[in-house]
Write a protein that binds this DNA or RNA. Sequence first.
DNA 1: AAAAATTTTTAAGCTTACTTAAAAATAGTT
DNA 2: AACTATTTTTAAGTAAGCTTAAAAATTTTT
Lengths: 219, 219
Amino acid sequence: MSVAIENFVKAIYKNGKRDHNDTKPGNIAKELGISNAAATDMAKKLATKDLLHYEKYQELKLTDKGTKMALNVVRKHRLWEALLFKLFDMSLHDIHREAELLEHQTSDLLANKISEYLGNPKFDPHGDPIPNANGEITTVDTSIPLSNTEEGKTYTISRLMSDDKEFFDFCAQNGLKYGNSVLISKQFSNNKMTQILIHNNTILLNQDFTSIIYVNETN
Amino acid sequence: MSVAIENFVKAIYKNGKRDHNDTKPGNIAKELGISNAAATDMAKKLATKDLLHYEKYQELKLTDKGTKMALNVVRKHRLWEALLFKLFDMSLHDIHREAELLEHQTSDLLANKISEYLGNPKFDPHGDPIPNANGEITTVDTSIPLSNTEEGKTYTISRLMSDDKEFFDFCAQNGLKYGNSVLISKQFSNNKMTQILIHNNTILLNQDFTSIIYVNETN
DNA sequence: AAAAATTTTTAAGCTTACTTAAAAATAGTT
DNA sequence: AACTATTTTTAAGTAAGCTTAAAAATTTTT
């Protein structure tokens, strides 16, 4: 299966996990930086390969086979991120970019070797869960976006759901890192802004950021 | 530049280093597993990109630009081999196969990180020299094939120049490994066979193998 | 030096993964 | 409910990297 196909099913998988749940060709096209026409073509083709269900004008739905393929690629991506993060001093954004390419050129054998070397980690450096060799995510995700937190409570950063360089640069500068603690000092009523205290610094975040930073309540 | 192009210049580079020195399209085609016609087409195309000099029916000669590209790919290949060899318990053949794919999806930045992590090694696990970030091979190679050794002398294995699984399996079984010592117990007159002593085992090697196992005389 | 064998080149054609442009259907707005 | 805007689909076309078949040139053998 080609890189284009792997990226296509991965994009459907990722979009299907999001709030909007828009997996129509146009959204997948946007995710992949290709034309809508190309996405429609590809969707039809992958339907014949039993990777997804295609019905005109409807959302694209991965079959079990398609989901398995997507999870296999996601697994390799996250294992690479975990490995590069451990071995090298590189920004999360750079690591992501390398993993984006390496994920398609990695045998299952190598993926298993990486996993084993790392002690079969359950999460990558963004806090995203790493599917196991069977394509299963066994961890239960109880995290919520920062935008949904309560004023005065303390949380632990569990996921940074982004590919964006500016976002990661901002995070790196402000100690927003997987595992770190944040206190919600002020939650503005409309949830459009959140003020947090981290490392004795007060930061004001807008919804662009509070919707992709996920946290768990600290016990 | 595409994977196909990187592999093409790499094949010319490798063939140019061998005894036969046959870099006509047919030989490159054989190396890459494509048709002669495809190789001729590609050669013409790469000439327009100033990667090689093309003259009908003549050997293909890399330009400086083409050589630089080839060495950059070779560098990444050998760095990956060195890294995978260090981190994981995998056969040299499997490592080679993974590196064959990863080499094309590796930024210069990542290559430098791998190199740094490994202490800027000068050789990969086969004993092949690793070009530096400028595409220069600074080491001097004094090694000779086993077929050219002298009876009674002791040598150190310096390079195993092959991609072949059977060869590597044989090597692994018999302790034929980069850095190991061999005594030439009998060199048959026509050089078609060589009998060596390694790890207290006597092995008879034919020329297929003695021409790709390189050694240095032990001081 | 001719004849035979091989290699290289040319030519035509295929598949993949795109593109743009226009038609068709859906979704949003008044 | 009708009009508008957007999205999806269809259709036609392109570039990369191959293929096979046949012509042209080179190389090898006798």
